[in-house]
Design a protein around this nucleic acid. Sequence first.
DNA 1: CGCGTTTTGACGGCGCGTTGACGATTGCCT
DNA 2: AGGCAATCGTCAACGCGCCGTCAAAACGCG
Lengths: 224, 224
Amino acid sequence: MARVLIIEDDEATAAEIARALGQRGFQPEHACTGEAGLERALTGIFSAITLDRMLPDMDGLAVAESLKAQGLDTPVLVISALNDVDERVRGLRAGGDDYLTKPFALEEMVARVEVLIRRRQSDTARLVLRYKDLELDLVSHTARRAGREIRLFPKESKLLEFFLRNPEQVLTRTMIFQTIWGYGFDPGTNLIDVHIRGLRQKLDAPGLPPILHTERGAGYRLSC
Amino acid sequence: MARVLIIEDDEATAAEIARALGQRGFQPEHACTGEAGLERALTGIFSAITLDRMLPDMDGLAVAESLKAQGLDTPVLVISALNDVDERVRGLRAGGDDYLTKPFALEEMVARVEVLIRRRQSDTARLVLRYKDLELDLVSHTARRAGREIRLFPKESKLLEFFLRNPEQVLTRTMIFQTIWGYGFDPGTNLIDVHIRGLRQKLDAPGLPPILHTERGAGYRLSC
DNA sequence: CGCGTTTTGACGGCGCGTTGACGATTGCCT
DNA sequence: AGGCAATCGTCAACGCGCCGTCAAAACGCG
């Protein structure tokens, strides 16, 4: 999952940005100072960086310049209260890849981050399905519930995919065999039961409500 | 010198943009309609495109989408009078690489075009890729891990390049065959396995953590 | 023709899918 | 309410097929 570094001294702003990014499926991390941000950016792997123009210890532009000077080409979105045209031009020339002025709409910020990342790795757009606090990466066969990452077997992944594409609906055994195994009939084994068990075991961490419900005599259903 | 395509119906605006770009050393060309712009963009080689959101014959966003759909990845700067946040987000999601609202300062417009071009060049013309303690020189086909220099075969280099451009992501056999061999399908041989083995053997010096992981039933992944 | 590289094919190990037995639970019927 | 049958859940073990390995053959370039 794409990691985004937030270099921002104001805690409240940083929290808002992080939340907005998190909702779009990014994995945000936060650094409070320019120094810390530089450190994190150089040691970790990030898909993009949001950089506050004004930081307590150093100018945001100095951070951007330093990053580019060290050969790091992670795209940088400069965020600033300075709306002057000259300031914006300076920000872009200093190594920023985009410039956004405060106050800004969170949605626009996220959209700009997405553009920056999209340009970089234009290939391999990963396909992700979502329902409530559950999401599934169809390529890596990796699920995620309440932030916890869960590795699934291919068959489990296919099964969960079927449920996520038909949430809150009862799926009969026949439908499941049809879709996952291509059978077209119920062979009478407990194949599905076993895989459902596997999924439940991995998805239902203690403290969370169960998400796969059995409809006796009918089939199974994915719901809150 | 870099050519920039201006898709803009208003003659006066187009002339201003062209002059400003020309002064910074760009070679501007002008198309008056969306249709003409599409035509020029697809037939000529441009480093960037400025695209008016409102055109007489078609919506600017439709032009942007059409360009991206045809596989053209020339960066697009969308210019519009619509300053609504939703509009801007739509513009970016539709395939625009940046969004600028009228009225704008010519200098900022030029700066943004420069950023788009700079970013693209650094993407394609980059000679060395890095991830953690691993780096790869694309011209000499030489890798380096923990300081140790490693000579790679051309195929191995291409394969590693693909992984380095998509770190920490699962790459399926199909994706790899598509990218490295241009097949578009999995021929069912163990070609990839053999080359992966070659890379592992060369990259994983004893004492270092393995860096190429297999995701059974899914593909391979480059990580820590 | 000779060298370096890529591809093929055979073989073995092990992960994952499947099976079958058995226990638990549900719902109907007496 | 209680018993019974049908349905579902759980577990461990088997075996197929995917993946790793190796060496030899095919390829391409000079």
